[in-house]
Design a protein around this nucleic acid. Structure first.
Lengths: 260, 260
DNA sequence: CGGCCCATTGAGGTCTCTCAAGGCGTGTGG
DNA sequence: CCACACGCCTTGAGAGACCTCAATGGGCCG
């Protein structure tokens, strides 16, 4: 599919397509299995479907919600990717995670009336929104949904725990290897080629997430490229030697000098 | 209170005291406000109280649950403190957090049938246990409890996010300052003197948690002591200059050389 | 085509890690 | 009650890894 010319007719057609997408119900959604409990029946599904809002696609750099945003919601990423971050008192910010297609974000807002971090699109992205207040009410009446919510929250909880595990590694090369391996696994989980990574975030974002500086990221990529472990082409990274990358990811405590 | 002599009678007396503690109901528990929704009524409270198990106190080094433990539960720390950690493929482990009196742990097990990390007592500690499977069933029938569970989970979610924020700081001194400030705030939240910290974990645990080595921790404490910011006495740390500590915690990105 | 931003690469400095030795507190056994 | 051993913590010297500063290269968009 090639990019259409910028005409009013084409724009209108694109909008129609978007609306078509937006009208897609939960029952027909490709992410069905990720969102919904397997045991939910047609009647309950309709109730859930009713409170899901499909938002207009977000452009690159657009914010989905900010620290302090009221009426928090859960969001399911239907396409594209986002990053979440918190702003530190000094002004700079720490990136907490990247959220790919099929993943859920927004759990930070459930503790109170407001979101605790900021979510921004890394590329054009579309999401489903489920206002938490309404979701909570429905979950109270649909035990299967409540249970699924606990499961999904806990899964995110465990996923978040991998961040400090990575940051705790003393060697920068191990952190990057873990990061790439993690993305590879998430590609596989959504049915894509796990060896072909699309890094939608900037080098700066990666550096921030890994607790390094941008130059170090760049040098490490060059090193991995020179050793034939990956093929780096701007935002596209092809993993050529998964086993070696895996070894780098593990050997981060003290014996990685032998591997380098 | 001095340590009693090791006699059979004293041991029996201690056990009686323990049982007395164990029989305390949720309604009378000092942690009431942390566990329970404010709106819960007497009848529902009784149902919840019924499924809470009070465990025998854990000795220092005892494990509350391990990675892979079946039938996951939530635990409320009633006294003492614990640490949670995951074991890495190479054999060493990463500490994910410390859990003080009044705090809740065990959310890692809700995603599946088993816990995903290991919890170990840092000192003699007592906890309340709530098997998640039963809690989930009751929560489905008590909307106030369900809502409170979401809130507590989300609060832990946000609390966990502070770990990578701290690890992301390039300077070791900032990480330690943030760690101490965090402990201070948690002391204040539970009604204790926020300037008097009892570090129940070893220097090795602190180093692991902060992504540093033990010698660095020791040197940083000496530096803070020499500058008059804290008074370090083995496991006891008294904060003498909270403002300066706060400044160190913030100025970690690049301008902290000016402060040191 | 030109400007701009992002990414890459190089040289030098410094913070933290590594390796090593010594001090202190605790618990155990005589 | 004291002596000893053990573990934990502290302190020092040296090396290595990453950060800082600086300049160049390459896409992307106007």
């Amino acid at each position: 599919m090639t990019a259409p010319p910028r005409s009013a007719a084409a724009a209108a057609a694109a909008r129609v397509v978007d609306i078509g997408e937006l009208r897609q119900s939960c029952a027909a959604c490709a992410l069905h299995a990720l969102c919904l409990p397997a045991s939910i029946d047609g009647h309950d599904l309709a109730r859930l479907d009713h409170l899901v809002k499909r938002r207009q696609p977000l452009d690159r750099g657009a914010t989905l919600f900010r620290e302090g945003s009221a009426h928090p919601s859960l969001f399911v990423v239907r396409s594209g990717s986002l990053k979440t971050s918190v702003t530190l008192p000094e002004g700079d910010n720490q990136i907490l995670g990247f959220h790919l297609s099929g993943e859920i974000l927004g759990f930070d807002g459930l503790a109170g009336e407001r979101h605790q971090c900021t979510a921004e699109a890394l590329e054009r992205a579309s999401v489903c929104e489920v206002p938490f207040e309404q979701l909570s009410r429905v979950a109270a009446q649909v035990p299967g949904l409540q249970h699924q919510l606990f499961r999904v929250m806990s899964r995110e909880f465990v996923r978040e725990q991998q961040h400090p595990v990575m940051m705790g590694r003393k060697q920068a090369l191990s952190r990057l290897a873990i990061f790439l391996r993690n993305l590879s696994e998430r590609r596989a989980a959504t049915g894509h080629d796990p060896l072909e990574l699309q890094l939608s975030m900037s080098r700066q974002d990666m550096a921030n997430y890994l607790g390094l500086v941008i130059e170090t990221i760049s040098r490490l990529f060059s090193r991995l490229h020179a050793q034939g472990l990956v093929r780096v082409e701007r935002k596209t990274v092809r993993i050529l030697d998964p086993a070696a990358l895996h070894a780098l990811a593990e050997g981060g405590e003290d014996e990685n000098r032998a591997l380098a």
